[in-house]
Nucleic acid binder design. Structure first.
Lengths: 181, 181
DNA sequence: GGCATAGTTGAACGCAAGTTCAACAACATG
DNA sequence: CATGTTGTTGAACTTGCGTTCAACTATGCC
């Protein structure tokens, strides 16, 4: 039994639209997100974007979800390559100062939006849960886990704001330090 | 030599517009900020808002500056009342879970915007410098200062996102912990 | 081949935004 | 009081948005 070719194309275009949404948010921020802008990015009519995502909220939810999934995937990939979990997180954060800056800004803007829109909250929580899991493998102290999550969030904010970003080694050291190593 | 009454009224209206800008950003986010929205908030014609702040960026800069100044003022006031600096910061962050939530979200959204617009960056830096100063009075270790800034930033993010906010005592404990106390 | 379903599109509409500007009011100055 | 400057306003204009919808195409099913 073969699959419906229509639905296959539908999923493909849906994925294109989500990628375009992230590109738009990276470039112009959430404020610049419109159905038309996403459609322009893909090169398809605006009504197509509306067909798949009736509201802008639908686009935001899908985009944040995709961004978080990608981060979690990168984390797992780094770990699978033999890096320790903390090293992997340090690497991800270090990238924020380089090629990952745009994506990080988009993710951060969407996460902040979660404070306003409940629909985004469980998605944003997914990444926090992942960080909690990493910290939990290094300590049993709940306060330490708390501090680890907070400090990684804080470093990320610093990287986006500061002119001079921290390097991988410094981030790794700070993360290990909060774990008491 | 008396002052020009026109300029006095001008400053008053300017202040009204800045307060209105913060109110709008608290309620609707940066995305909802328009000259017309600010004007509606004040109850004046839109062209008046444009007269004082030609671009939306001008409004954003003024609003973030005012918000940061207010936070710094609150911090100094708490210290003047006899609280320790760390206790004062813990109190400010604790308020984010309560009455200060709206303002905190506005401040945070504007600070994040600083990553995109250089004009906002030195203003956002003012608050970070203040936190650095507080930490510096408790330690000489640069890494500890770094961690203190990051963790306070991280707790703030947690407070805005989480359903169950941390209480004052927990925040104070986490801050003292990162200082090594 | 014929029919139903899923996907796709362009056009039209109403609304709210930023921008511009000419006219008006308030004030300081001589 | 007369004059020039500063502040202030409402209206007109253009642009771009979300929304809606009727028409159209491609695909699966019998």
């Amino acid at each position: 039994m073969t699959e419906d070719g229509r639905k296959a194309r539908g999923r493909r275009r849906r994925a294109e639209l989500i990628a375009a949404t992230l590109a738009v948010v990276e470039r112009d921020g959430v404020a610049g997100l419109t159905h038309r802008a996403v459609a322009r990015e893909v090169g398809c009519p605006a009504s197509s974007a509306v067909y798949y995502f009736a509201t802008l909220d639908d686009l935001l939810v899908a985009a944040l979800s995709a961004a978080i999934d990608e981060y979690i995937g990168q984390l797992r990939e780094l770990v699978a390559d033999g890096r320790s979990e903390v090293d992997a997180i340090a690497q991800l954060i270090a990238d924020v100062g380089g090629p990952g800056r745009g994506r990080a800004m988009a993710e951060r803007e969407l996460t902040l939006l979660a404070a306003r829109r409940p629909a985004l909250r469980p998605i944003a929580q997914r990444w926090r849960d992942q960080v909690v899991e990493v910290a939990s493998q290094h300590t049993d102290d709940p306060a330490t886990v708390l501090a680890f999550v907070d400090v990684s969030e804080g470093i990320c904010a610093r990287m986006l704001l500061d002119i001079e970003p921290l390097g991988y080694d410094e981030i790794r050291t700070e993360l290990l330090r909060v774990l008491g190593r």
